[in-house]
Design a protein around this nucleic acid. Structure first.
Lengths: 249, 249
DNA sequence: GAGTGGTCTAGACCACCTA
DNA sequence: AGGTGGTCTAGACCACTCC
């Protein structure tokens, strides 16, 4: 099919997006049947593989699931599909209707600790920008957020007011970087006295720690991050699927 | 897993499996180039879509990542891809070389608590099998595991010795059920006195709580589960990817 | 039998990277 | 220029579910 002059996003993405909007608008309820692959072929004038790709995306996002011989159904949407799609704290909270602010505890260029330097694959002389923020949602302190970004990748970060700015928007916008993925580890830890004071919780209270490294599309590490969430105010949800090795068909 | 009723798995699965074994054998190191899609077409005599499907699977498992114009590379394998593929505790630990045992704290049929009954979509008169186990790895207590399974789905569970048995193997084997996915929530919580005693940690120590509902392919809820892991001995790793909506073409 | 998703083929054009 | 992955077409056969 003709794609026109304007560079459009891939067709399957636009179909998936359209279906997502139908789901989020409430026109399709959990358990409802999505259009079949043949129906999408007819509706959008695409081949079956393209229609399948669109549904694949919804399935991988946890918005839908397939049942052979019956159809593709809307999944119970309690899960925030943000989860294993990498989104910034700001994007995540706003999607859920909260008002997010931040208190900047530190913003400086420095020599990274050696585990961070290793993870970011830096030479000893390369400096990083260190950003430490206290994240608040509706004025309640929710999380501590520490990021290290190699200075040469986006030097202008040192002049930004991170009280409201979104780090990923800056990296993808003004800095022209293309974020691809992030490898993260979740742990449960006890709050240190400093963390407890900042988050306004008792010492030793449980925190959810998320530590990770974010990569660009070419594999360059772009950020080392550590988040500490208050155990009493935060949770992570996700959908696991049965591995194709063990569950056949 | 032994699931060998049908001798012929899809071709793309067998190719993906072969590549996975090459990676795990160490013949391909992290950062190495995997065979290109054309190379796989020639090597296995398949079409490009089939070769792509095999590589897709490795990418979704976090074993590989693609770079347009360059190739598909082996990813740093620190991540245990167990993460968002649903595997049993036994499968997970054995993959990492630990020796797993369990102490059965409870095995009974009972009336479920009402949140569990709701999650499992049970009528008030339907009973569940309640299994509570203390999981040990190399004789160190690592986790508390509580499961509720509707009795009518697999009545024979009440006669099993869960000291060594794997729940999912039983559900998929003797019970003939087809597990599809699990929706889970991760939290950080403080250990109750009972949990602390069983896990041999101080009261109030941080635990990683994973709570979820497992579904069959037809959407039937088959298990309500809650796991409490010692914060000092367990972590969850995963790869998040940038959402296709925001990461523009 | 009709409709669904699961898999597969054999081509095509494009954007991107390395050389 | 040649190779790579990203997307797409237009068919095909199969297994499964529902009527």
């Amino acid at each position: 099919m003709s794609r026109g002059r304007v560079p459009l996003k891939p067709v399957y993405l636009r179909i998936a997006r359209a279906l997502q909007e139908i789901i989020e608008s409430g026109k399709l309820q959990p358990g409802d049947l999505l259009p079949s692959e043949h129906a999408l072929m007819a509706a959008y004038g695409v081949s079956r593989n393209t229609a399948r790709s669109a549904l694949d995306l919804l399935v991988r996002m946890g918005l839908a699931h397939r049942v052979q011989g019956r159809g593709t159904f809307v999944t119970v949407p309690k899960v925030k599909y943000g989860l294993f799609y990498l989104s910034s704290f700001t994007e995540e909270v706003q999607r859920q209707g909260g008002k997010t602010t931040a208190r900047v505890l530190a913003l400086e260029t420095t020599i990274p600790p050696s585990p961070v330097a290793r993870a970011l694959q830096l030479r000893p002389d390369q400096r990083v920008i260190r950003i430490e923020r206290l994240r608040l949602v509706d004025d309640v302190p929710l999380a501590l957020h520490l990021s290290f970004i190699p200075e040469h990748l986006c030097p202008l970060l040192v002049d930004v007011d991170f009280t409201t700015a979104s780090l990923y928007s800056l990296l993808e916008g003004p800095c022209g970087l293309r974020i691809a993925r992030s490898e993260q580890v979740i742990r449960a830890v006890a709050a240190t006295p400093r963390q407890a004071a900042l988050l306004e919780i008792p010492r030793g209270a449980p925190l959810l720690s998320i530590q990770g490294v974010t990569y660009l599309e070419d594999g360059t590490p772009v950020e080392w991050l550590q988040l500490f969430y208050r155990g009493d105010h935060y949770e992570v949800t996700f959908t696991a699927i049965r591995s194709p090795w063990e569950a056949h068909t």
